[in-house]
Amino acid sequence: MLQIRNLRVSVDGQKILRGVNLDIQPGSLHAIMGPNGSGKSTLASILAGRDGYEIEAGSITYHGQDLLEMDPEIRAREGIFLAFQYPVEVPGVTTMYFMREALNAVRKHRGKEELSAGDFLRLARQKIKPLGMEAGMLKRAVNEGFSGGEKKRSEIFQMSMLEPTLGILDETDSGLDIDALQVVADGVNALRSPDRAFVVITHYQRLLNHIVPDYVHVLGDGRIVRSGDKTLALELERRGYSWIVPASGQAAAAGA
């Protein structure tokens, strides 16, 4: 469903991705690991369509279309969902209103009828319950004053509402206690299906005990330096990154 070919990206003249290649098939779950600063969030942002990056070379094809030509909202309607590493606070806009607008935009694009207010609320309550959040959260401004854990759960809630084809989770596990981690993992596992794929970016192997990946990739110095199965994650947990990503971080910091 998604092919990334030789993707090279820089920000303010600093090279961040230096030739990423990745193929994602429907139904698969890919974990991307790597040290801080290796470009994981950059890759996620590029997929979601954030601007401010310079694409120097390469291509991304999503369901046969040139993804890089699509606006962020079109990507979302076509089924791409990014759970942000740092979810954004939007004061003055309630989660309820935001999600209803989003869901109806997505449904319309997919040729489905818009949901009535009542149907929307029923659906939202149904989706929010297993995440261990109160329905009252829907009335609060998007992410405003949410704890770190609440923000991450809210991302999963949004994902389960929008039912993406490709879900990308950027460090959704960071900073979560074990209960919250389980809730997030359950939320992802409940969405797994043969026509849906996931990219789970994480710094820690721990999450992958709960969300079992088909593939594990290590991003180092702007490239995928190794790919393997779930045992690779365990090895990384034991040995750290330095044996496959020599002098990682330093190279990026030096702008080399």
């Binding site: 909202e73 954004v88 939007v90």
Partner: peptide
């Protein structure tokens, strides 16, 4: 307008124009 917030809204499928409206109204 907060460009990061606008991107966040758009990344959920909301059009650029609607995102702008929502943020303006929220302000």
């Amino acid at each position: 307008l907060d460009a990061t917030a606008a991107f966040y809204l758009r990344s959920r499928g909301i059009s650029a124009a609607d995102a702008r409206n929502m943020l303006t109204y929220a302000f």
